Lab assay of single mutants.
Amino acid sequence: EVYKVKIKIERVLPNGEKVEEEITIEVEGMSEEELLALARELAAEPGVRIKEIEIEKLPP
């Protein structure tokens, strides 16, 4: 199964400015739980906050 994972994050820059970013990846052969863990890892940097995680199962 192939999933499209869209992660919206908010990053706080050293000057205090907040910037929103969106990361989209396609992943194959992982469960939804593994995808959530991967998304959290991607956003685990200091000053980064996850705003939204969207997981979509793509048709075969």
Rank of each mutant, 00 (worst) to 15 (best):
E1R: 08
E1F: 13
E1S: 14
E1P: 09
E1M: 14
E1I: 11
E1W: 15
E1V: 14
V2I: 09
V2K: 14
V2T: 09
V2S: 07
V2R: 13
Y3N: 01
Y3L: 04
Y3W: 15
Y3I: 04
Y3V: 03
Y3T: 02
K4E: 02
K4I: 06
K4M: 07
K4A: 05
K4D: 00
K4P: 00
V5D: 00
V5I: 08
V5P: 00
V5K: 00
V5A: 10
K6C: 03
K6N: 04
K6R: 13
K6W: 14
K6I: 12
I7E: 00
I7Y: 05
K8I: 11
K8V: 10
K8S: 08
K8M: 04
K8T: 14
K8P: 00
I9E: 00
I9L: 08
I9G: 00
I9P: 00
I9S: 01
I9A: 01
E10M: 09
E10K: 01
E10G: 01
E10H: 03
E10Q: 07
E10F: 12
E10D: 05
E10W: 14
R11Q: 01
R11F: 05
R11A: 01
R11T: 02
R11G: 00
R11M: 03
R11E: 00
R11K: 07
V12P: 02
V12N: 09
V12W: 09
V12Y: 08
V12G: 03
V12Q: 12
V12F: 09
V12L: 10
V12A: 12
V12M: 05
V12S: 15
L13Q: 05
L13G: 07
L13M: 09
L13H: 05
P14A: 12
P14C: 08
P14N: 09
P14W: 15
P14T: 08
P14D: 11
P14L: 14
N15R: 02
N15H: 04
N15K: 02
N15D: 09
N15E: 04
N15I: 01
N15P: 01
N15S: 11
N15Y: 04
G16M: 04
G16C: 04
G16W: 02
G16L: 04
G16Q: 03
G16E: 02
E17F: 11
E17D: 10
E17Q: 13
E17K: 11
E17A: 10
E17R: 11
E17S: 11
E17N: 11
K18T: 12
K18E: 06
K18G: 05
K18I: 15
K18Q: 05
V19M: 08
V19E: 05
E20W: 05
E20M: 07
E20R: 04
E20C: 06
E20I: 10
E20S: 06
E21D: 10
E21P: 01
E21I: 10
E21N: 06
E21C: 09
E21S: 10
E21Y: 14
E21T: 06
E22Q: 12
E22P: 01
E22C: 10
E22V: 10
E22L: 08
E22A: 07
I23N: 01
I23M: 14
I23G: 00
I23K: 03
I23L: 07
I23W: 10
I23Q: 02
I23Y: 11
T24A: 10
T24W: 05
T24P: 01
T24Q: 06
T24D: 07
T24Y: 09
I25N: 01
I25S: 02
I25W: 13
I25A: 02
I25P: 00
I25C: 04
I25K: 04
I25V: 07
I25M: 15
E26D: 05
E26W: 12
E26T: 08
E26M: 10
E26L: 11
V27W: 09
V27D: 02
V27Y: 08
V27H: 05
V27P: 01
V27E: 03
V27T: 10
E28M: 12
E28F: 11
E28N: 10
E28L: 14
E28C: 05
G29M: 07
G29N: 12
G29H: 09
G29F: 06
G29K: 10
G29L: 04
M30C: 06
M30W: 13
M30G: 11
M30H: 08
M30Y: 14
M30D: 04
S31N: 07
S31V: 09
S31P: 12
S31E: 07
S31L: 07
S31M: 08
S31C: 05
S31Y: 11
E32D: 09
E32K: 09
E32Q: 11
E32V: 14
E32L: 10
E32I: 13
E33I: 11
E33P: 11
E33Y: 14
E33K: 07
E33S: 15
E33Q: 15
E33H: 15
E34V: 15
E34C: 08
L35N: 01
L35M: 13
L35A: 10
L35R: 02
L35I: 13
L35K: 01
L35V: 11
L35G: 11
L35S: 08
L35D: 00
L35Y: 05
L36M: 12
L36W: 15
L36N: 05
L36I: 08
L36C: 06
L36K: 06
L36P: 02
L36V: 09
A37V: 13
A37Y: 14
A37M: 10
A37K: 13
A37C: 10
A37S: 09
A37P: 02
A37N: 10
L38M: 12
L38W: 15
L38Y: 15
L38E: 01
L38N: 02
L38Q: 02
L38D: 00
L38V: 05
A39W: 13
A39G: 04
A39I: 08
A39M: 14
A39T: 06
A39N: 01
R40W: 14
R40S: 05
R40A: 04
R40I: 06
R40D: 02
R40F: 06
E41D: 13
E41L: 15
E41V: 15
E41G: 12
E41Y: 14
E41A: 15
E41C: 14
E41N: 14
L42F: 08
L42Q: 04
L42V: 05
L42M: 13
L42H: 10
L42K: 04
A43R: 04
A43H: 06
A43E: 06
A43N: 07
A43K: 04
A44K: 14
A44M: 12
A44L: 13
A44Y: 09
A44G: 12
A44Q: 06
E45R: 15
E45N: 07
E45L: 15
E45I: 13
E45V: 10
E45A: 12
E45W: 14
E45C: 13
E45H: 12
E45M: 15
P46I: 09
P46F: 15
P46W: 15
P46L: 13
G47H: 08
G47P: 01
G47W: 04
G47N: 10
G47L: 03
G47C: 09
G47S: 07
G47D: 08
G47E: 06
V48T: 08
V48S: 05
V48C: 03
R49Q: 09
R49T: 07
R49I: 10
I50G: 00
I50H: 00
I50V: 07
I50K: 00
I50L: 08
I50R: 00
K51L: 14
K51T: 11
K51G: 02
K51S: 06
K51Y: 12
K51E: 03
K51F: 12
K51V: 14
K51H: 04
K51D: 02
K51W: 15
E52V: 11
E52Q: 11
E52H: 13
E52R: 13
E52G: 09
I53H: 00
I53V: 07
I53M: 06
I53W: 08
I53L: 04
E54T: 14
E54N: 15
E54P: 00
E54H: 14
E54L: 15
E54V: 15
E54G: 08
E54W: 13
I55Q: 01
I55C: 04
I55W: 09
I55D: 00
I55N: 01
I55R: 03
I55G: 01
E56F: 13
E56G: 07
E56R: 11
E56Y: 14
K57H: 05
K57I: 09
K57D: 02
K57M: 13
K57F: 13
K57T: 06
L58D: 03
L58T: 09
L58N: 04
L58I: 14
L58P: 06
P59Y: 14
P59M: 13
P59D: 04
P60F: 01
P60C: 07
P60D: 09
P60G: 10
P60A: 08
P60K: 03
